[in-house]
Design a protein around this nucleic acid. Structure first.
Lengths: 149, 149
DNA sequence: CTTGCAATTGCAAATGATTCGCAATTGCAA
DNA sequence: TTGCAATTGCGAATCATTTGCAATTGCAAG
């Protein structure tokens, strides 16, 4: 897989060793389409290597974060839901449905526009934006209307 | 004070009692212009009432959150900085300078526009948005240029 | 102004996620 | 093949937050 090779080679380039534990964690991060938190990465990896320790997962995620290969992101207004995501997914944001907990990806240039406007106005330089939207998706809005209105 | 009276009366309306501890916490939340986390609310309150316990602060903040009188918000991409803010401050967002840790408030209608667009497109209903920007403010950008470029 | 009782408090212990110290193990370059 | 620094597993430490519980206290009803 493309990203995997790249993750591996980037780690190596940074002078890191490629252990079976790391390969496993990288492949899980790489091959999933889901949004995983540290615990879930651990759960999945542990199924394959029962000996794996959660500290190793945290250590690996921490290295990847430091190298900016993944980002730690959050869902929900109170940030109760956390996950890690490969940085090469491109600029996008998330909407969490409070009804069914579904995550919908939101694409829009407007956030970047806000950053540009603000930069032009103040001279500031942006490095990152964290954006989470919360509400009810179309089908949950309907359900709600049927039940309560 | 306006908000204070309203916070007190809203709590009472919800059947809660007005203890000295709560009054103190409410007044701190109300009168500060700063962004306070639970620890800082506790620190400030404790100066006035040395007997106050931090569990009481957490309990009070929790009640206010449940009643949607304050919001729990976060700064910084990794959400390492948390604070509570009165909900009646109106729609605004924050930019955290990674150099000097200064917080700059960002005002823009674009975030709401994104929400409207997305709603129109998908039929979803928004309840909240959490938006944090991160980067370097104008003077830190200059410092950086002088030092490293 | 009393009285009673549920709400609230302080405290200490529990929790849950994450990190750390350390000894044992293991990649990998020479 | 070897040596050593990087990495691992483990258990203990940490840190913010929550909880159980007994003592205290608002406040409403008499």
């Amino acid at each position: 897989m493309d990203t995997k090779t790249s993750l591996e080679s980037q780690l190596k380039a940074a002078g890191r060793r490629m252990t079976p534990q790391r390969k496993l964690i990288l492949s899980i991060l790489d091959e999933t389409g889901d949004h995983l938190d540290a615990e879930e990465v651990y759960r999945r990896a542990k199924k394959i290597n029962g000996n794996l320790n959660i500290a190793t997962v945290y250590r690996t995620l921490s290295i990847l974060k430091d190298m900016e290969l993944i980002e730690q992101r959050y869902f929900a207004r109170d940030h109760s839901v956390e996950y890690y995501e490969s940085v090469n997914k491109g600029e996008h944001y998330h909407f969490t449905c409070l009804g069914c907990r579904k995550i919908i990806e939101v694409e829009t240039p407007k956030i970047v526009q806000v950053q540009k406007e603000f930069s032009a106005l103040t001279g500031a330089k942006f490095t990152h934006a964290c954006v989470c939207f919360e509400g009810y998706c179309a089908s949950c809005v309907n359900d709600e209307e049927n039940l309560t209105l």
